[in-house]
Amino acid sequence: MTTTAITSDKYNNFESFEAKKLDVFIQLGKDLDEDVLSEMLYTYFQTTEETIQNFKAHFANKDFKSIAHLAHKLKSSSGQLGLQKLHQLCTDLENFVHSESSDNVELNVNKYLTLIFDETHLTTALLSNFLKAA
């Protein structure tokens, strides 16, 4: 993998937020008579905030293995909520670290993290708006 390959253009084909994915949580909420959607999203907001802070701490320590694990967790959570672009970014970051490429690891991980932070910021806003409207 080369440094030039990691740009936001590569992810243009992925939707930031696929709202349809949340229908299942709305239905679960109706069936259980609980606010499933809110609980799911609040937990996501909380854990993602923690994940971002942990990404930063592990990057400062050059702990790329832990970064790959955090990417793995965020990959699962974002995929579950229909955040396609974030899901793909996390998948690529995890794979990049596991590939044990010696090609500018720190620089490339930093590029991935920058894109992930931007996308997280955007999708958090989109999900918040969706929750308000729901």
Partner: peptide, 14 residues
């Protein structure tokens, strides 16, 4: 992963 646990919780309850 708390999100996965939560999702599993709701489906299992249903």
């Amino acid at each position: 992963n708390k999100n996965d646990l939560l999702m599993a919780k709701f489906v299992i309850k249903r």
